[in-house]
């Protein structure tokens, strides 16, 4: 992530809570979420936020469809 954040937001995905269902990946309008190559303790490949351009709006789509409330959405202010 760059210091200048164009989208003015970002998300955090709880890597342990995530079951890798992929619903957030499917709804992200900017394709900023992907499956991790790592396994979590449950044996899933959790979703991972990957936003090198700082594009996250943050629209909250991922949060809304996440069945495991693994996502927290942040807004960047000031």
């Amino acid at each position: 992530m760059k210091t200048t954040v164009k989208g003015r937001g970002y998300i955090e995905i709880d890597q342990q809570r995530c079951k890798g269902c992929g619903l957030c990946i499917n709804v992200c309008p900017h394709e900023l979420i992907k499956f991790s190559t790592k396994f979590n303790s449950k044996g899933y490949h959790p979703a991972e936020f990957d936003d090198p351009e700082g594009l996250c709006p943050p629209c909250g789509f991922c949060y809304r469809v996440c069945p495991d409330t693994a996502i927290t959405v942040f807004r960047i202010v000031g």
């Binding site: 954040v5 970002y10 942040f74 807004r75 000031g78």
Partner: peptide, 11 residues
Amino acid sequence: NAEKLKTVVFL
């Protein structure tokens, strides 16, 4: 980097 920015929890 984001940690350096002022953020609020949205959701």
